[in-house]
């Protein structure tokens, strides 16, 4: 299972950057938005392709090779 983590950086001007790492789907927004909401005004948002992945995405891969 991927590591789920939030990295928060508060710069010396007070601006806050919240990065979610390994948290997929809606859960990602729940945590990040809750923090943003208690702090103030959201100024920008970037989402990577990971956001659009399903929260459950286990996949088994079977390779079959011909052995001669």
């Amino acid at each position: 299972m991927a590591q789920e983590e939030i990295e928060i950086e508060v710069d010396k001007h007070g601006r806050v950057t919240i990065k979610t790492i390994g948290i997929k789907g809606k859960r990602c927004l729940d945590v990040a938005e809750a923090l943003a909401e208690i702090l103030g005004k959201e100024e920008g948002r970037t989402m990577t392709s990971e956001f659009y992945e399903s929260e459950v995405h286990a996949q088994n891969r079977i390779e079959i090779r011909n052995q001669r």
């Binding site: 950057t17 919240i18 990065k19 979610t20 927004l29 005004k41 920008g44 948002r45 956001f51």
Partner: peptide
Amino acid sequence: MSTVLVVAPIV
């Protein structure tokens, strides 16, 4: 990484 939010705090 899946989301990055930038927030300007309101005191």
